[in-house]
Every structure is written in C-alpha cells, then in structure tokens.
Design a protein around this nucleic acid. Structure first.
Lengths: 148, 148
DNA sequence: TCTTGCTTCTGTAGTGGCTACAGACCGCAT
DNA sequence: ATGCGGTCTGTAGCCACTACAGAAGCAAGA
C-alpha cells in the first residue's frame, strides 16, 4: 500500500480507482479536452495532481447525473473562467432536469404499452400471439419518442 | 398520385413514407439482415412487396416500443421459423418491460437528485453555487446507473 | 544487476443505431 | 431529348465510450 501524497502526484490507475472512471475513459477525456494534459514522469507516464482529481470527480458525478459531455464542458468552462453566476448553473441544471423528465414520460408510455400487450397474452403454447399481432398492425400516425 | 398496387411493388421512398422509417435506415436494416434483400428493377432500384412492408412496420413499431435491434432480430427469427410459441414472445416482452422499468427507476433517482440540487440554489448573481459545490464533492462508494 | 510482473503508453478500431454526405445512375413526364 | 426527382453504392460521422495490440515504464525481490 503506497500512499500518494500531493507531492508525488497520482498515476492514472490511482485516478481511476479513486473516481471509478475507467483508465481508457480518462485518456479519452484528455483527448476531447475536458481534462487537461497532466504532467509526465521522465518515462512519459501521466502524473495527476489533486485539482485534476477533483475535476475528474466532478465529471464523473455529472455524468452519473446524466449530464452530456457538452453540458459538462459548459459547466467546466464556467468554472475555468471563474466568472460564472449561480443563475447560469441553475439554468443548465433545470434544462437538464426537463430533459430527464421528458425521458421518464416517454418510458412510462412504453411501459404502459408493453403491460397492455403482455396482459393480452395467454402465454400458451399455440403460435397465435396477440403480442405479435399488435406489432404487425399497420402503422398509425402516432409517433412515440424513442428512448435514447 | 400513383397507386402502388401489390403487383408493381413499392420503391424505397414509398416504404419510407408508409412506415416513417428513413430511407437510409431501411438500407441499413437490409445490411444488418433484419430486412431481406428485395427484388430490383431492371435498372437496379429496390422493389418491395407487401410482406416486406409489414415486416418493416413491425420493426418500426418494435423500435418505438424500445426493443433493441437484437431483440427484434430474435422476435423476427421466431416469426420466420414459424415455430414460436406465444410463451416465448411473452417472455421476451416481459424481459424488455423489466429493463424499461429499470431505466425509469434510474431516471427518477436522477430527477430527485437534480431537484434537490436546484432547490438549494439561490439563482443569485454571486459565483458561489451550491450546485457546483455538490458536483465537486469527493466521491462516495455509491454508483447510480447511467441512463443509456 | 537482472528479472519478474504489473502498469501505462500510443494508436486504432469497434460498439449501437442510425444519419449524412458525394457522385453517379434510374425512371417518368413533358 | 431533357429535366428533375428518386435511388444507387460506399464511406464517414455521431455519442460516449470500450477494447484491443504491441511496446515501454516502473517498483520490488533475488
């Protein structure tokens, strides 16, 4: 058990362990410029500092809350500029909340439709299935949103 | 207004109009073998028949219900083999229903978290934002599922 | 010092489910 | 014959990663 103090910096594996972000994903974040290029050892291995650890945590938490990379990029830009207002951040959050609610709505419709279909099914051994009949029905105008 | 009777067959654009599936997507479905290779005109343009129209409708409806391509492939294989039982289809549907419910659950957690964060925010003009503070918090063990 | 064995490196390609071109050809009406 | 829209193939891009291959770094033990 080695202890990584601030002084030495964290290798990428330690960053991964501490944040739960996959190593490959950390390098990916660097490539798309939401993580900065870290220092390197003499041999060329990445060495991260504590701020970078915090930043990666931020990204991870935000992703888990369903923010897209672009939304996170926007949040991080505000932070980096250091001139953001709380209202801006609130706006972004509310916008994201709305899209989450949209998704939930869509999925609930699906749920209903699936429950309805399954309920009609006798589950018997006969190859005469009301589910398939429903699926084969000619299409109507309606256009429920696909979940993404 | 031309009428496409069974005899002549439908060109791809007509298929697209009737099902709401994008032309490019129809060709994609052929490439991944969930739509059969249709007849061609002398000049090489696709000509679909009524069965193929029904099949495409089936796929579209199933996609709208959130079935993955692989699930649809499984359903279609049953249909093609003509030896499926209603129970099998029911099983697939129930399985899909479960995954839809999982997604809803995950999204509701997100919703709650976002609402909580937003509520704490004064929306003021000061750059001292409880939302960002939350996002910057050091990570815990918990690992809410990402919506996909 | 050398070896062992884990970690990390770069670069590229794959995932799902499409979508978006470019540049050529088809087919039908006038 | 001409014009114009529909269609063709093939390839590359989207998002957010993930999965390699093959080489090189690095720390601990013999």
């Amino acid at each position: 058990m080695s202890d990584f103090t601030n002084a030495r910096g964290y290798p990428i594996g330690e960053m991964s362990k501490r944040t739960g972000v996959n190593i490959e994903t950390i390098r990916y974040y660097e490539r798309i410029n939401i993580m900065p290029k870290p220092d390197r050892t003499a041999g060329g291995n990445r060495q991260y500092n504590h701020d970078q650890l915090k930043r990666l945590s931020f990204i991870k938490t935000s992703r888990e809350l369903g923010f897209s990379i672009d939304e996170i990029r926007a949040l991080l830009e505000m932070v980096d500029r250091e001139d953001f207002t709380c209202g801006e951040v609130h706006g972004l959050t509310i916008g994201h909340l709305a899209s989450v609610r949209e998704k939930i709505k869509g999925l609930r419709k699906l749920e209903k439709a699936l429950v309805g279909m399954a309920a009609e099914c006798s589950q018997g051994n006969v190859p005469d299935c009301p589910i398939l009949e429903t699926l084969f029905q000619t299409r109507t105008r309606s256009k429920p949103a696909l979940p993404t």
